[in-house]
Simulated assay, not measured.
Amino acid sequence: MDMNIDSRIFKEDLEMINLSHYIDWSKLQNKTVLITGGTGLIGSTVIKALLYVNEVRKLNVCVLALVRSVEKAKRLFGNETDALRFIVGSVEELPTIVEPIDYIIHGASPTASLFFVNHPVETIQIATMGTMRLLMLAHTKEVGGFVYLSSMEVYGAPKEDTLIPESQGCTLDSMSVRSCYPIAKRQCETLCASYVQEYGVPAKVVRLAQTFGPGVERDDKRVFAEFARNVMNKTNIVLQTAGTSKREYLYTADAVTAILTVLLHGKTGEAYNAGNPETYCSISEMAQLVAEEITGKKINVHVAEDTKSGEYKFPPAHHLHLDVSKLTNIGWQPTRGLKEMYKRMIAEMEERL
């Protein structure tokens, strides 16, 4: 298997995915799977998982990875093989794909809040144009399944701790620039539903909680990566907001099994929440967990003196407690809690140093 997987932690995660009994791997036998966002955190983990399972189970799967940079793709996966092909391009300007395609996992998307507020037009363009092109490709290729990776942010900013089912609406301010990301995600979900209705494309949606674990780049600007760097550098955590927002989180390998479960067993035209309810906490509570339980109280948590100037970069205060029963009812289960997520992410980061 020509993959760049030297990490013990990654290997454990890939074997956990392989042993997920609720996934019918036989449905991937002799199939071709197109994955967009192939060098992103989630996309790359999906690709590594499929290549690993393909090798172990002799499935004869072919993965087509849509990537912007072949160099980065080779660093992550090694060279192309019979089981892995690189397609260079973007979802907005989708290159011609001559191969037959059986499944599509569409995960290409900006993920950084600073990008959303500095490039809101591009955020919307990448989401909507890219998703429409992928859905039309799915229609043309007559795929057997299509999964769009959406976000828990589509629910906006609920104020209560009550569980959020997939049927719940949203409270998004369309005149707030930061809303470009979740509103574009909602638009893409509606595009999926529209292609189901009008063209019969077997599209499904996974609304992911904030996902992290092994594979996070050390210079990632998201809050969980900031906290990890604080641990590794033994520096105090400084919150840029009051940290009152509460949300669920999801381990990378658990995100992969959620995506594959929906792809192979989910109902066409439906959305599925994916998060670990046991991780539900405020950002300040997560910071305290990192400071106290990961470092053994070796660092402290402070709130920045000026939290107003940077608030535009972040979503409004919210309580995103996802009800994941719809997904667990078709077999899926999360495996890693917040403490383990941090320990495994940091350990894998240190392995790469």
Rank of each mutant, 00 (worst) to 15 (best):
V206W: 02
V206Q: 04
V206E: 00
V206D: 04
R207G: 03
L208P: 05
L208N: 01
A209I: 02
A209H: 04
A209R: 03
A209M: 01
Q210R: 05
Q210H: 09
Q210C: 06
Q210M: 10
Q210P: 07
Q210V: 12
T211H: 12
T211I: 06
T211A: 09
T211W: 09
T211F: 10
F212V: 08
F212I: 05
F212A: 09
F212W: 12
G213V: 01
G213Q: 02
G213R: 02
P214K: 01
G215I: 01
G215H: 00
G215V: 06
G215C: 00
V216S: 05
V216W: 05
V216M: 07
V216G: 02
V216T: 11
E217M: 08
E217I: 05
E217A: 05
E217P: 09
E217N: 06
R218A: 15
R218L: 15
R218W: 11
R218S: 12
R218C: 11
D219S: 06
D220F: 02
D220S: 14
D220K: 03
K221T: 08
R222T: 13
R222H: 09
R222M: 14
V223E: 13
V223R: 00
V223T: 15
V223P: 11
F224M: 14
F224R: 13
A225H: 07
A225D: 02
A225F: 02
A225T: 13
E226W: 10
E226L: 11
E226G: 09
E226K: 12
E226H: 13
E226F: 15
A228R: 08
A228W: 03
R229Q: 14
R229F: 14
R229S: 14
R229Y: 10
R229E: 14
R229W: 11
N230K: 08
N230F: 01
N230H: 14
V231R: 10
V231P: 15
V231S: 14
M232R: 09
M232H: 01
N233I: 09
K234M: 15
K234A: 14
K234S: 13
T235N: 14
T235K: 15
T235F: 07
N236T: 06
N236V: 08
N236Y: 05
N236A: 10
I237N: 04
I237M: 00
I237W: 04
I237L: 05
V238C: 05
V238M: 08
V238K: 03
V238S: 02
V238R: 10
V238E: 06
L239Q: 10
L239P: 03
L239K: 11
L239E: 01
T241S: 10
A242M: 02
A242P: 00
G243F: 06
G243A: 07
T244P: 01
T244I: 02
T244F: 12
T244D: 07
S245N: 03
S245G: 10
S245D: 00
K246T: 13
K246R: 12
R247S: 10
R247F: 09
R247V: 09
R247N: 07
